[in-house]
Write a protein that binds this DNA or RNA. Structure first.
Lengths: 341, 341
DNA sequence: CTGAAAGCGCTTACAG
DNA sequence: CTGAAAGCGCTTACAG
C-alpha cells in the first residue's frame, strides 16, 4: 500500500538537514524558525511529498481540527444553506466538518454523544434545540458549543439566531396592513423553540392591534409540506374561515397553498398566505410566496465564526454570547389587500 | 479543563485488575477475551466513564473511522437526502462523515485534496463528477472511493447511479404518448456527465420514435431555478414553439413554469413540462410536477454500503463496481395529453 | 533559533 | 486467554 511508504517528519528532517522538532515548527509555526531553515524544510517537504499525519498531531496536541455539526434532519433542504455557510467558514480556517444527523440517531442518543467528546472534535455547532442537553451537561467533557437558528430551551448557551417573535410580528403586521382581521396561524411542533417564539409573536401583534384571537384558527404543524396539507383540510372544514394564514415556515405554506388549490380555493384571491424562511423555491412558487427572509448562509457563517473565536479564547460555555441577525419581509404574490370591513 | 482528568485505558486496567492490552481487546474485540474478564473491564469502563481517545487509536491502527463526502454544492437541496442516506448508513457502521463542499473549495483545490490523504479518512464518497481526478491519481494515497449520482468522466471508478439515458427516454416517451411531437429540452451544464447522458437519452428516444429534432428547442442550463427562467424567456421569444419541454431537473422545471406563468402562459394548458429527480416540492407545486423519480436516499445508502464493503475488503479502486438503481416516471399535473396532429 | 528527548494514549505482534 | 513491551508520528517544554 502506498501509505506504508509515506514520508514522515523524520524523512523531511534528514533531507533538510535539521531535527524533527525544527521541521515541526517550520510547518506549523513558520515564524519561529529562521528564514533559511524554513525554506530548506519546505523544499524538503515538497520534494518528498510529505503530508502530516493528523492522528499523530491530534494525539500530541490534544486537538482534532474538526467541528461537530448536529443537524436535526439532513433531508430537510432548509439546512442546506446554513451548512454551506458553516462548511465554508470552517474550511477557510482549516477545520473539518463532522456532520451528524440527530434525528437519525434519535433511537441511539449515545451515538450523538460520542461526538461530544474531546477526542472527536474541538467544538460543536448545534442546529437542534431539542437536543437532550442534560446528557451534554453530564458528560465529562464540555466542548465549546454554539447553537444556530434554534437554541436550547434553557437558552443558556451561546447562539446565533434571528428574532423570531419580532419576525412573526412583521408577518402579522403585513397581513393587517393588507386589511386582514381574520388571521390564522399554522405553527411548528409544540415544544420547539421556534414554534413557541413565533407563536408568541403572533399573539403579541394580534393583541397589540386589538384583533380577536380565534383558537380554531390556530393549527399545530411540524414544518413539513404535509403539515400544510393537513391544515388546509382543516381550514376547508371550518364554518367561518380566516382570510389570511401565517405559516411557521415556507414548506408549510407550500403545502397549504397546493392543497387549497387542489380544492378549488385560490391563493391569494380567496385567502392570503404568508410563509417564513424565504427558501429558494419561494420566489418560483405559483403564486410567488410572500414570506420572511431569513439569512441562512449568514447564520451559518456567524455561528462558525463565533465558535472559532470561542475555541481560540478557550471560552467557557457559561459565558453566553447571543447574536440576532436581521430578517426582512418579502412581499410577493401569495398575500393580497382586501377591503377592510 | 475536564479532559485533563479524563480516564485513560490505564485507569480502567487498574480498576479491572488487568493489563491495558486486555482492556483494549475487551473493548474492541470482545470475543477474544474471557467472559468474566470482559465483564470486569466493561464495568470498570462504565464506572470511570472511560472514553477512548480516537487520535491514539487512529495513530496506532492507521485508521480514522471517518469518510470524506465530497458534495458539489451543499446549498443545493437536491443533495440533502442523499447525504441523509450516507450519514445514516455510515453512522450505523460507526463511521463519521467529513463533509466537504467542492464548489466552495474550487478556488483552492488543495483544500479538497488534503482530505484525500490517509490520515484524514478511510474512504471517499464523491458526488461531484467534475472533480479533477488527475490530482487524485497523482496524490500518493489512493483511498477507496465510490462515486454516487455523478461519476468521473473516465467512468473508471466504482459508482452508484441511475440509468440517466434510460430515464430521460422515459420522460420523452411519456410526452410522446401524450401526443406531443414538438419537444424541447433544457439541459444541465455542458460537460456535466448527467447533462450528456440525459441529453443523449433525449436524442435516442426522439430518433427511435422518428420525431424531428429542432436545435432551437434545445437549451443549455445549469440545474438552477434561474436556468429555467432563462429558458422560458427563450421559449417565449420563439417563432414556432415546442408543445412540451423536458427539463434536466426539477428546479429547472419550476423556473420554467413560474416564468411562463408570469407571462400568462399556462402549464399544462399551453405547454407541458416534465422534470427530473422528484424532489419533495414537486408534489406540492402548482401544477404538481410530472417528473422522473430518483431514489436519492437509496443512492446514498447504496454508495455508503459499497464503500464500507470495499474498505473491509481492501478493494482496489481499479476493480470497478457499478450499480444502477431504478427510476420511475411519476405522472402528475404539469403534462397533458394533446390531440395528435 | 535549534536539538535531544519525553510522551500523547492507544494497539498489536509476541510469548507464554 | 492474558501481559509486557514496543511503537504509531507527531509536538513541546527544556536547555543551550
Amino acid at each position: 500500500m502506498a501509505q506504508d511508504t509515506a514520508p514522515k517528519i523524520k524523512d523531511v528532517a534528514r533531507i533538510a538537514g535539521v531535527s524533527t522538532a525544527t521541521v515541526s515548527r517550520a510547518l506549523s509555526k513558520p515564524e519561529t524558525v529562521a528564514k533559511e531553515t524554513r525554506e530548506a524544510v519546505l523544499e524538503a517537504a515538497r520534494k518528498t511529498g510529505y503530508r502530516i499525519n493528523l492522528a499523530a498531531r491530534n494525539l500530541r496536541s490534544n486537538r482534532t481540527g474538526a467541528i461537530v455539526v448536529l443537524v436535526p434532519n439532513l433531508g430537510n433542504p432548509f439546512f442546506s444553506q446554513i451548512l454551506a455557510g458553516i462548511e465554508q467558514t470552517l474550511a477557510r480556517n482549516g477545520l473539518s466538518v463532522l456532520m451528524v444527523d440527530t434525528k437519525h440517531s434519535q433511537a441511539r442518543p449515545e451515538l450523538v454523544f460520542e461526538y461530544l467528546h474531546h477526542s472527536r472534535a474541538d467544538g460543536i455547532i448545534c442546529l437542534d434545540g431539542s437536543i437532550a442537553m442534560t446528557q451534554l451537561e453530564n458528560s465529562r467533557v464540555r466542548l465549546p458549543i454554539v447553537f444556530a437558528c434554534e437554541w436550547h430551551e434553557t437558552d443558556s448557551y451561546p447562539s446565533i439566531r434571528i428574532d423570531n417573535a419580532h419576525s412573526a410580528r412583521l408577518a402579522i403586521r403585513h397581513l393587517i396592513e393588507f386589511g386582514h382581521r381574520d388571521i390564522g396561524y399554522i405553527d411548528g411542533p409544540a415544544g420547539n423553540v421556534l414554534s413557541s417564539t413565533r407563536g408568541a409573536g403572533v399573539l403579541q401583534e394580534l393583541k397589540a392591534q386589538d384583533i380577536d384571537i380565534v383558537q380554531d384558527w390556530f393549527f399545530e404543524g411540524d414544518f413539513t409540506l404535509n403539515a400544510g396539507v393537513a391544515a388546509a383540510q382543516k381550514w376547508l372544514a371550518l364554518q367561518t374561515r380566516p382570510t389570511a394564514l401565517f405559516c411557521a415556515n415556507d414548506e408549510t405554506a407550500f403545502g397549504v397553498i397546493s392543497e387549497l388549490h387542489r380544492n378549488g380555493v385560490s391563493v391569494p384571491d380567496d385567502v392570503s398566505v404568508i410563509g417564513f424562511d424565504d427558501i429558494d423555491f419561494a420566489q418560483c412558487f405559483i403564486p410567488p410566496l410572500t414570506t420572511i427572509h431569513q439569512p441562512r448562509e449568514a447564520l451559518g457563517i456567524a455561528a462558525a465564526d463565533l465558535l472559532i473565536k470561542r475555541i481560540d479564547q478557550n471560552a467557557d460555555n457559561a459565558n453566553i454570547v447571543q447574536n440576532s441577525l436581521p430578517t426582512e419581509l418579502i412581499i410577493r404574490g401569495s398575500t393580497r389587500r382586501i377591503a377592510s370591513r
